[in-house]
């Protein structure tokens, strides 16, 4: 029995919830899902998800309710973590915006990656693209990128798991570090539970 918490201040947390239920069913791993909003919700978690949304909003509410630091502790204690889109921004040690300079926001800063917010541009530049992901060679994975960030810098313990070529530049869209997985796209919007299954297998281990 594993318990996975989803940070549920704002954004696509119910989409992760539904995907986790699907991943549990497909792997026959027994598990439950908890929405995390208050400090007590962090107790007894085996893994945590930081969903997509607006990173500025999620960071500010986590800061205001005082659990930003507690979430950081859970991640740093080695609990498997899946972060998507805004979640990846929250985890990055270095963050900047593609257009607006000198912008600061509350972040977790636990992963050795540099992220550029809104890298691909505005909503009209949001796109879908089939991805090749390390360890998922059987079929490509449909990447849904919505006002997505990009991982432009990687060092230390972090490692690229999937890259795309965009405007002739190579960009990392999926990275890992220890038991942390961070994607700049939205696996929870596809019907494909492979990434969530990889995550719960990390939790199970």
């Amino acid at each position: 029995m594993v318990t996975i918490g989803i940070v549920a201040f704002q954004g696509g947390f119910y989409e992760h919830y539904a995907m986790l239920l699907r991943a549990f069913a497909e792997t026959s791993i027994e598990g439950e899902v908890k929405l995390v909003k208050k400090k007590k919700d962090l107790e007894g978690l085996d893994g945590i998800i930081i969903p997509g949304g607006e990173s500025t909003t999620i960071g500010k509410i986590a800061h205001k309710t005082g659990i930003l630091y507690d979430i950081k502790e859970v991640i740093e204690s080695g609990k498997p973590t899946l972060a998507t889109c805004a979640g990846a921004i929250m985890l990055a040690k270095k963050v900047r915006d593609a257009k607006v300079p000198e912008f600061s926001q509350p972040l977790l800063g636990v992963m050795d990656i540099g992220v550029v917010r809104n890298y691909f541009g505005r909503q009209r530049e949001s796109f879908e693209l089939d991805l090749h992901i390390e360890g998922m060679d059987e079929a490509p994975y449909r990447g849904i990128f919505i006002r997505a960030p990009a991982i432009v810098d990687i060092w230390g313990g972090a490692r690229a798991i999937s890259k795309i070529t965009y405007n002739k530049e190579e960009i990392i869209v999926f990275a890992s570090q220890g038991s942390i997985l961070a994607t700049t796209f939205h696996p929870e919007l596809t019907g494909d539970a492979r990434i969530h299954k990889r995550f719960i297998s990390l939790v199970k281990r």
Partner: peptide, 10 residues
């Protein structure tokens, strides 16, 4: 349809 998903709760 995806963009509004990430506006939820906001």
């Amino acid at each position: 349809y995806g963009l509004p998903i990430y506006q939820k709760g906001g």
